[in-house]
Computed example of a mutant assay.
Amino acid sequence: MGKYIGPKSKIARKFGEAIYGADKVLEKRNYPPGQHGLARKRKKVSEYGTQLSEKQKAKYTYGLLEKQFSRTYEQAARMGGITGENLLKLLECRLDNVVYRLGIAPTRAAARQLVSHCHICVNGSVVNIPSYSLRAGDVVSVREKSKSLEVISASLAGSSKSRYAWLEWDNASMSGRFLQKPEREEIPENIKEQLIVELYSK
């Protein structure tokens, strides 16, 4: 499957949730897209369909393709503890996600682009891999040459940097510290990770 580049409102309507942030289209038409959107809402979804939908929602939310998501799940399964929680923790440790969480970018897609275009540093060195996994104590900062970028300034001006307990933000240096992997209750995404585990366990 290639990268999805179509309307994001369509995906949000499919899941009935604003997974990409505030969405006026979703507010007006809170039912699945397509000619039979309203009719489909009444159909009973199978157990497999519910599990698959939850996995797809997680993939779209964090911007991963099937192979990337499967690899992340396998890594989570190898770790000790609850697999579903491990999966979400690993997704939250991704560099593109942390750039978004810190408020440097308005969306995860924008964060991924900033990382890919070498605007972000980790511990003082430029990292251009969006899937780069951060460790406790890592410092994520905006590259010196990129601090005047309008997209970054606008995003920082409109965001609240103190929302997440596992991150620390310093406005003066335009850098944030990844303190630790978040606990499940600290992750705000509405994802039923147990359904994803059940799907992969079949």
Rank of each mutant, 00 (worst) to 15 (best):
G2A: 07
I11N: 04
R13N: 07
Y20C: 07
G21Q: 03
K24M: 09
V25I: 11
L26F: 10
K28P: 07
P33V: 08
P33I: 05
G34Q: 12
Q35N: 12
Q35Y: 12
G37D: 09
A39Y: 13
A39F: 09
R40V: 01
R42I: 13
K44Q: 14
V45P: 02
S46M: 08
E47F: 15
G49K: 11
G49W: 07
T50D: 15
Q56A: 10
Q56I: 01
A58W: 02
Y60H: 15
L65G: 15
E66K: 12
E66T: 13
F69Q: 03
S70I: 09
Y73Q: 01
Q75S: 11
A77D: 12
E85A: 02
N86W: 10
L88A: 00
L88H: 04
L88R: 13
L88W: 07
K89R: 15
L90F: 02
L91Y: 00
L91Q: 01
E92P: 05
L95W: 09
D96N: 06
D96L: 11
V99P: 15
Y100I: 06
A105I: 14
R108E: 07
A109F: 09
L114V: 14
H117Y: 10
H117K: 12
C118M: 11
H119D: 12
I120C: 14
N123D: 15
V126M: 03
I129L: 14
Y132A: 02
L134M: 07
R135P: 03
A136K: 13
D138L: 00
K145Q: 05
S148N: 09
E150I: 11
I152T: 08
G158D: 11
G158K: 14
G158M: 06
K161H: 15
S162N: 13
S162T: 09
S162A: 06
W169K: 00
W169C: 06
D170A: 04
S173D: 13
M174T: 11
G176Y: 01
R177N: 01
Q180W: 11
P182Y: 04
R184S: 01
I187K: 01
I187F: 00
E189T: 02
E189K: 05
N190M: 06
N190A: 10
I191E: 06
Q194H: 05
I196P: 07
E198M: 03
Y200T: 01
Y200E: 03
